[in-house]
Nucleic acid binder design. Structure first.
Ligand SMILES: [Mn+2]
Ligand SMILES: [Mn+2]
Ligand SMILES: [Mn+2]
Ligand SMILES: [Mn+2]
Lengths: 226, 226
DNA sequence: ATAAATTATTAGGCAAACCTAATAATTTAT
DNA sequence: ATAAATTATTAGGTTTGCCTAATAATTTAT
């Protein structure tokens, strides 16, 4: 597709990182994305964000209204999804083919997602068997930017006696992923809720016949299918 | 290895491209590498080269004597070899795993060679079965920067009646590689010299029972084992 | 040996992507 | 409704890596 090829060579790494950040911020927000939230996500200063936002608006990747934040245009959204597609395909590759652990792949994928080659993305996708989810359970957009949107439910929403399967995480940080490793919780792990403390919502669950305690913070960050 | 890890995160893409260019220029030259040759190889202006060279000298990657060109230091050479290792491993990956043709991989490898992750290089190498040669017949340096140095002989040096096996090319440009494809000449192709025109050294060779004519320019650019 | 031609360096600028400090607009509190 | 606090923008720098034009050193030709 011609548009795709064009899109693919047009933007700098920095611009791509802004698009991705705005896309992710839009997932849990309605209305314009604030300068400060972008600045926090990218650990840059607000002044730099304003500057970049103007450039992105110039290129029709975002709609920008001074003092009222930005929103991705359709073009901006498509390109953000392409970067996310590449990020997640590479993470899958690293874990499933190169023996990386799931807590080691993010930083490398942050680099690989900027490699510009439409053929590479397509062939990698084929090579990997067109995976639908990355190693953290996050959906991989297809070549047209379509996301298999499975509505996610938090483990913290379950009740005593409920059975569930772990399907993803809100927090993909190495430290949380390593914690999950220690508790033997991974993608598609079967879980049973044994009990919930009334005073702080600490949850007792059963994982592979082991009893484990999880804080409310932890259970909030675990998505399940129920 | 600590030195390796340090090296691996220290240099910009631009600096790495200079190191690689200088390394390749040193292969066919003795003494200092001239500013103009680097400028030509990287298609930048001489003034930019002088500037960058000073920075590389500052970082002890090259020895630089004003007006007499540069030479890589041991550290510079090690790092150049790491970039070349990555470049060639990725080319191998693209051709052998992702169905790229050998004339399509160079530009993508130019991007991939700058990805910074020692683990990625090592795991990729293992995944690919520790290949010794890239798809163009160029040797892949090992993790310590050692190159399997097979002395290369030009096809143009052979005589009527000689048999040989194609082992590499001096020119890795898409156009030359595509020309070779058309003539059914690839790595390890068996060749027999049928005759050589005395006036322009055009060579008649036998490839898979087909008779082919190759210009002196072409036979100069084909390396053989004999 | 000197002049001409070639090659390299320096000087001075520019664009991208950051920054800090100063100012302006909006939002929240009184 | 006004003042205070918060958030965003603008103004003015910095660094990296590139450029052109001017100058300097080296090499080649006479
Ligand atoms: Mn990630
Ligand atoms: Mn992920
Ligand atoms: Mn190459
Ligand atoms: Mn190659």
């Amino acid at each position: 597709m011609y548009l795709y090829a064009l899109l693919n060579y047009m933007f700098s790494q920095s611009e791509e990182n802004y698009l991705k950040a705005i896309f992710h911020l839009q997932q849990n927000a309605n209305g314009g994305i604030s300068t400060s939230s972008i600045s926090e996500k990218l650990t840059t200063k607000a002044a730099s964000v304003t500057e970049m936002i103007k450039k992105l608006a110039e290129k029709n990747l975002v709609d920008y209204q001074k003092y009222y934040g930005v929103q991705l245009t359709e073009t901006g959204r498509k390109h953000a999804l392409l970067i996310i597609r590449k990020h997640r395909l590479w993470e899958f590759f690293l874990v499933k083919r190169l023996n990386f652990n799931w807590d080691e792949v993010h930083d490398v994928a942050e680099q690989l997602e900027h490699i510009k080659s439409p053929k590479l993305v397509e062939e990698l996708d084929i090579f990997l068997g067109r995976p639908e989810y990355d190693p953290h359970g996050d959906p991989i957009p297809d070549a047209n930017g379509n996301l298999p949107k499975a509505p996610k439910k938090r483990l913290s929403g379950l009740k005593k006696g409920d059975h569930a399967i772990c399907k993803g995480f809100n927090d993909n940080s190495s430290s949380f992923l390593q914690f999950l490793d220690k508790q033997n919780i991974g993608l598609n792990t079967k879980i049973e809720v044994i009990g919930i403390e009334s005073f702080d919502e600490t949850m007792t669950i059963l994982v592979n016949s082991n009893t484990i305690l999880l804080s409310k913070t932890a259970t909030d960050n675990i998505y399940v299918e129920h």
